[in-house]
Amino acid sequence: MNASSGKQLRADLIVIAALLLLSGILFLALRLGRREGGVAVVRVDGVETERHLLSVDGVFPLNGGSNILVIEDGQAWLSEADCPDLLCVRQGKVHYTGEVITCLPNRLTVTVEGGDSNGVDLVVG
């Protein structure tokens, strides 16, 4: 019993350490790949509905007014939402490519993507 629980403890620790390591590696890999973004792309149910340049300040009601997108000083955030938990509002401001604000109840995401200011997709070699 004691021998086997000792073995189990070691195996447990290996599993836990491996998962922590995995999350660290993934975190660094995703972070290293990020760059300053150019546009905020709004998707509902995974389908793009609109996109707004981060270089132009503005306030945009999304998805028929369920969420309010604010763009100011090159950053984008959701200032209001009609869902009870307001998680999307608390996710704060985004500006790096790949950063996402997610509103699960309205199945809405705001993703920062690359792309220069005239709206042409950036080609990365």
Binding site: I16, L19, L20, L22, S23, G24, L26, F27, L30, R43, D45, G46, G98, E99, V100, T102, L104, R107, T109, T111
Partner: peptide, 22 residues
């Protein structure tokens, strides 16, 4: 499920969710 419903960008949540799940 979020990937299926909202597209691949949700993968950015994976590191923090693996960490918090652990």
């Amino acid at each position: 499920m979020a990937w299926v419903l909202m597209g691949p960008n949700v993968v950015y949540y994976l590191p923090v969710l693996i960490f918090s799940g652990t």
